[in-house]
Computed example of a mutant assay.
Amino acid sequence: MAGIAKERGLFIIADETYREIVFTKKKAISFLSLAKVRDNVVLVDSASKRFNMCGARIGCLVSRNKSIMASVLKFSQGRLSSPFLEQLAVMPLLRNSGQFTHHLIHEYRGRRDAVIRGLSGIPGVSAYSPEGAFYVIVGLPVKDADHFCQWMLQKFHYHEQTVMLAPAEGFYVTPGKGKNEVRIAYVLSAPKLSHAMMILRRALEVYIRAVH
């Protein structure tokens, strides 16, 4: 990707908000560390993902390209109503982010494992165990994941419970890609996620009989 950007004079906008949430011994490589495209990279980051502060509109935009940063500075000075309280809240985390993210990684790893274990027992489901972040793309044995997601919310329940899924087709540029896939985020505790995967299995059994 860096080579293509350099060759064709393109910019890489790198969303690296998950780069510290890694479940293996591997280390995420920042695009800003690649010298040959240092002037072609715009990095964006967000405290809401890195520190699990949902709703906190605190982030940053970084580039080694001085022209880009000069333009960004002009734009940022024109903004009003910056989230002052959120800025105060995130300051201690920035001073010692490792202490907090270490616990966060441990928690998300356990949640990921609960989801993958649950999915592995569902016939026809395919999922790669992510090495980072807090979501997984899952292939389902259905033709239209969007229809299945709506059906689960509107017509299915298991003991008055159901599961909300995000259709994954919108995450792709290629037409038709992800048509049978969904995105599952680890936003609940591991026991609740295990229970949700059980409900998903029941839903697929009913849906396949009824629709297919």
Rank of each mutant, 00 (worst) to 15 (best):
G3A: 07
A5L: 10
E7V: 10
E7I: 09
R8D: 08
F11N: 04
F11V: 11
I12G: 02
I12L: 09
I13G: 04
A14P: 00
D15T: 10
R19H: 15
R19K: 14
I21H: 02
I21M: 06
F23M: 08
T24P: 01
K25M: 06
K26L: 07
I29P: 01
I29S: 06
S30D: 07
F31L: 10
F31R: 05
L34Y: 08
A35V: 08
A35C: 04
V37S: 02
R38Y: 01
R38Q: 10
V41W: 02
V42R: 01
L43I: 07
L43F: 06
L43C: 11
D45I: 09
A47M: 11
S48M: 04
K49T: 13
K49C: 09
R50F: 08
R50W: 06
F51I: 09
N52E: 08
C54G: 00
C54H: 01
G59W: 05
V62F: 04
R64F: 15
N65T: 07
K66C: 09
I68K: 03
I68S: 02
M69F: 06
S71R: 14
F75G: 05
F75K: 05
Q77N: 14
S81E: 08
S82M: 02
F84E: 10
V90W: 02
M91S: 02
M91E: 06
P92E: 04
L93T: 06
L93W: 10
L93Q: 05
L94K: 03
N96V: 02
N96D: 12
G98A: 09
G98W: 08
G98M: 07
H102Y: 12
H103A: 13
H103R: 14
Y108H: 09
R109K: 13
R109T: 13
R109I: 08
D113E: 14
A114C: 10
V115L: 08
I116C: 01
S120G: 12
P123Q: 03
P123L: 07
V125I: 09
V125M: 04
S129E: 05
G132K: 07
A133L: 05
A133H: 06
Y135L: 11
Y135H: 05
V136A: 09
V136Y: 04
V138G: 00
G139H: 09
V142Q: 01
V142E: 01
A145G: 06
D146E: 15
D146C: 07
H147Q: 09
C149A: 15
W151K: 05
M152P: 01
K155V: 13
Y158F: 14
H159R: 14
H159S: 14
E160M: 14
E160D: 15
Q161P: 04
T162G: 03
P167C: 11
A168Q: 00
F171C: 06
F171K: 06
F171W: 12
Y172V: 07
V173I: 14
K177W: 11
K179V: 15
K179D: 11
N180S: 14
N180C: 13
A185G: 12
Y186N: 07
V187H: 12
L188N: 13
A190N: 01
P191W: 03
K192P: 01
L193W: 04
S194F: 05
S194Y: 07
I199Y: 00
R201P: 00
R201H: 06
L204I: 08
E205R: 01
I208R: 04
R209L: 14
R209P: 01
A210E: 15
